[in-house]
């Protein structure tokens, strides 16, 4: 149990998807103008992350790995379909995002409009595919995968809400014109990354 909590805390703070791996920067920078929308997108990312990464784990484990198909017929025991992992991962993610989109549109129409194109674009949010690929590369088991995906989602959520809060405060700042908008957001991200360096080196 403690091992799982360690993975969770580590992925939220020490190996934050944004500040340590720079994954999912596009929606991170684009949807962080207001705390409310950032909050909504963050929750959507957590949901998609926790749904897809364990699902991808099951697909990988029971369909794609060498010998995984042995349960259908012994002659399939030597088939290795790992090369299909990318395309299957993306399909799972796209399906999950469709689900989220329908739910949000039905129940939270205001959030749906304010998220706009960035809700369907979660499909190509690098942090979500990244989480699945990290899961494959680090050879996590199912419980670890679940803890990891939850941590990665919360890490993204935390980062985007923090950036949104800072950007809301910076609305009153007298930022030089060329830097307004995306420019200052990138610099702020870098400075936040500097502060998050405080976690690097913590052994869990």
């Amino acid at each position: 149990m403690q091992h799982l909590i360690n993975i969770l805390i580590k992925t939220i703070f020490v190996e934050n998807v944004i500040f340590a791996f720079f994954l999912g920067m596009c929606s991170f920078l684009a949807v962080s103008k207001k705390i409310k929308t950032a909050f909504g997108l963050g929750l959507a990312v957590i949901f998609v992350m926790v749904l897809t990464t364990p699902l991808n784990y099951l697909i990988l484990r029971y369909l794609l790995f060498e010998g995984a198909l042995g349960w259908i017929h012994p002659s399939l025991a030597s088939v290795d379909l790992t090369f299909l992992s990318f395309i299957l991962f993306i399909s799972t993610i796209a399906g999950a995002v469709q689900l989220v989109e329908m739910v949000v549109e039905k129940f939270l129409p205001a959030l749906y409009t304010s998220l706009g194109i960035f809700l369907p674009l979660i499909t190509v949010n690098c942090s979500i595919l990244g989480a699945s690929l990290f899961m494959q590369e680090r050879e996590y088991n199912f419980a670890e995968t679940t803890a990891f995906s939850l941590g990665a989602g919360i890490g993204f959520f935390l980062a985007i809400v923090l950036l949104a809060a800072i950007r809301e405060r910076l609305r009153y700042s007298n930022i030089p014109e060329p830097l307004q908008g995306l420019g200052i957001a990138m610099i702020v991200t870098a400075l936040m990354g500097l502060a998050f360096l405080s976690f690097s080196g913590i052994q869990l």
Partner: peptide, 26 residues
């Protein structure tokens, strides 16, 4: 106590809380 890389934690913890301050206020 827990981060052997930075024996002095004050600087980084204040910087980190500078990042959190707007959210806390919100």
């Amino acid at each position: 106590v827990f981060n052997p890389a930075y024996p002095e934690g004050v600087m980084l913890s204040i910087l980190l809380m500078n990042v959190f301050a707007p959210l806390i206020d919100h």
